[in-house]
Design a protein around this nucleic acid. Structure first.
Lengths: 273, 273
DNA sequence: CGTTCACTTGAAAGTGTTCAATTACTGTGG
DNA sequence: CCACAGTAATTGAACACTTTCAAGTGAACG
């Protein structure tokens, strides 16, 4: 919780801290900062809901610390996870259009969020062109992200989805200053499955398979990335006939000469279009 | 091509026409309109590309007439269709963030688009608060749409996806003043499949199945919606064992007493969670 | 210490894909 | 106007991937 200062027994952040979180660089920031605009923080405990579907919208949130999920709920009450926001991510953009939140956000850990009253933001945008453009930019970025998600759901196999999920987590952890190799999942297999359009069993099995291959080590929620490049380029494991052959071959080899069976190289050949 | 007037041998639209297309109502429109801001139209022939991935972004487009597709291209050159924009839809929002288009847009028919230079738009937003809010609103709406798409790809069966696709087309045609029952598909099975995360064969088979059941009539690109409500509520056809039974029963019935086999009612029972 | 929830793993089933063959369109040039 | 080539759509059969169902293990927490 680097950003923020105490005032009235609460944490507040100034505009610069908010922009830094969002990875927005504003050259004339100092002149804006002079006004000492402050944004209030709010804390949520794990499991608490930040907003619900249909709830009136009037403020955006930025994640300062902690982990969350956002979700849609279909007509039968089933959750569809849309994203796993973490530090620097923005929440609530989908509420602008209808002035009601279109999704639900839930804390997966204790969280510290910064409140961005939408009216305050737009007013700011009016006096500072850079801020205005920053807002358009952030919204556009969210859209691009969703499009990438659609592309992934539309085109990739289960294994490729899980692999990309791990890679993106790795990226984000490293951006946040944590290890990109060794980290803990903050969400259940069920939530991952929902996010990726898979069942929790498929997620579990896929992680186990990656583990067996040696691309990762997995134990419950602890993940260790061993072959990042292999994960990045993986599109589809070989069809089961050849995979069966390969597995058999590997078993033979490892049985014969106690050598560690498959490595990143030996799986490169299976990274197919 | 109702909107637009001639000037310098080209079509132009004023702000009111643009807002009407976007379904945005601005109460103080008349005062803005006074300035006689005009936006230029551009025509594209079927097959032409409006913008490519990576191309510098500086203008948004609104579809005034015609049909298009937008798509992503993966590292192997495969298309992933993202949307099928038509009258009133906006194009190019994904380019704002990186100042480069993140997707490609292609005309599926001859099109008439209105150019909205982004700078002109933001300037307008600065002088007219309602316009500014309209822009945020439109971008938020795009995001909500993508989220709905993610939800659909993540949760629905092939049949449900195709059904929803038909329903949404029906909605949009009726909004545009065309028949909501009888229309022509402007895209190939391949493009539909890409959009829905399915193969073209699955799309074709599913349409044939709907046809056989009597929910729609399909002949090549001509679609006639017969049981709109059934399509709307369809989530998943029954598992093949019971479906086989059902089909057999239907065949028996129709063979026995020449009655039209299945109707909307008889399929209601299969609309399951 | 027992209950609960998350996770793993196996076996069977089902949905959707792939491959392949056939038919139907579309547009072009003779 | 027709033939022809090329693209689009349909359909069947075999197969593969993912899910479903089920059982069992493990960790967390009162």
């Amino acid at each position: 919780m680097e950003a923020g200062r105490q005032r009235q027994g609460r944490l507040w952040s100034n505009l610069k801290e908010v922009c830094d979180l969002l990875h927005i660089y504003i050259p004339t920031m100092s002149s804006i900062g002079d006004e000492e605009l402050l944004f209030q923080h709010v804390q949520f405990k794990s499991g608490q809901r930040i907003h619900t579907i249909g709830q009136p919208f009037d403020t955006l949130y930025i994640v300062n610390s902690g982990f969350l999920k956002t979700l849609l709920i279909d007509e039968f009450g089933n959750e569809q996870v849309l994203s796993f926001p973490m530090k620097g991510d923005i929440l609530g953009v989908d509420g602008i259009h209808s002035k009601q939140h279109a999704s639900e956000a839930v804390a997966l850990s204790d969280c510290d969020l910064i409140l961005l009253p939408f009216k305050k933001l737009t007013a700011l945008g009016r006096t500072h062109i850079e801020m205005e453009h920053a807002m358009y930019s952030v919204m556009s970025r969210e859209l691009v992200r969703e499009q990438a998600m659609v592309g992934m759901l539309g085109a990739l196999s289960a294994e490729a989805r899980v692999a990309r999920f791990l890679v993106s987590l790795s990226d984000r952890y490293s951006q946040m200053g944590y290890s990109s190799k060794l980290f803990n999942l903050r969400m259940t297999r069920h939530e991952i499955g929902s996010y990726l359009g898979l069942t929790l069993e498929t997620v579990s099995r896929t992680l186990s398979a990656f583990n067996e291959i040696g691309m990762i080590t997995v134990d419950q929620r602890t993940i260790c990335i061993r072959e990042l490049d292999a994960l990045k380029t993986l599109r589809r494991l070989p069809p089961s006939r050849s995979r069966a052959k390969q597995l058999a071959a590997n078993k033979l080899k490892s049985a014969a000469n106690k050598a560690p069976p498959p490595n990143g190289e030996s799986w490169g050949q299976f990274v197919t279009a």
